[in-house]
Design a binder for these strands. Sequence first.
DNA 1: TTCCCGGCAA
DNA 2: TTGCCGGGAA
Length: 348
Amino acid sequence: MSIWGELISWYEGNKRDLPWRNTTDAYIIWLSEIILQQTRVEQGMPYFYRFAEKYPTVTHFAAAPEDDILKLWQGLGYYSRGRNMLKTAQLVQQLYGGQFPTSYEQLIKLKGIGEYTAAAISSFSANEVRAVVDGNVYRVLARYFGIDEPINSPKGKKIFQQLADEVMDKQRPALHNQAMMEFGAMLCKPKNPACGICPVHLGCAAFKTNATTYLPVKLKTVKIRKRYFNYLLIMDGEMLLMNKRGESDIWANMYDLPLIETEALIEPAQLFQRHNVKEILGSNMAIKDTSEVIKHVLTHQHLFIQFIILEGQPENLQPNWFYTALDNLENLAMPQRIFIFIKKFFNF
DNA sequence: TTCCCGGCAA
DNA sequence: TTGCCGGGAA
């Protein structure tokens, strides 16, 4: 018995009775697996029943208009799943005469079927020895073996797939895969796992070291914010109007030029139509020139910077604005982009 | 209200 | 790598 024997016993005693678990019909299993991609069982269940009733075989499915599929899919999200299903159903109809394939190699070629789904269908319908690795399996393996390799890096994915293959109960692939996933969904949950009643907690690395909260490790996908910086270049005689930055944003406490940030790229002329800008600058300023838009890439933000050269004096200086002599510019700490522009502009 | 979760395709 | 979607938890 593999180390997961306990798990399979637990599964057999505690599994939910789900409709797609009582069949080896690859079409029905495919239907359920696609619906359950990125989707909770409770949410997918009613959809599964509707699809299975309306399209009892892949031949029925293949004959459906796309509009009907999408209508039935409505509310499930990730609508490309529905569109891909139709393509796959039609292909299965053509290539295999409506006999849904059960081998991993055939399945993986179909639209909307990736490694996970191919492993699931082939193991459930034909007991092919293919270890499924879904979100549940990542979690169970990371915790049980105490692996802190990120599960969403290419390297991590490879490691976890290999491990899953290695520890798989090869005598009963379908049962093993079901057990792993059910266990992850019911006991080894993302938050507050039920270690107290876990059948394998004694062998679990994360349980022993109290690390379930930290495993699995997932790389944060830093979402990049786009920001649009409109810098104003304003002179008073030989003095340049500068801005001292606050401490809550990038370039904290450094110096740059008076800045008007917008949610999108904007023409300087448009910018000056804005109520809040008018209020600060008044009506005595004219646009003399505008620089190219410079893209400045930071880890978590992309800045689109343009410099607007103005003539005249603003009516209201903001609290952090001040005039300084040009020969003092060398002494002020500025972001490199700003410094380069100013240096070039004043030719020093 | 925001955050987190999750397979596949391009 | 990023976009695709909706639901449930925080």
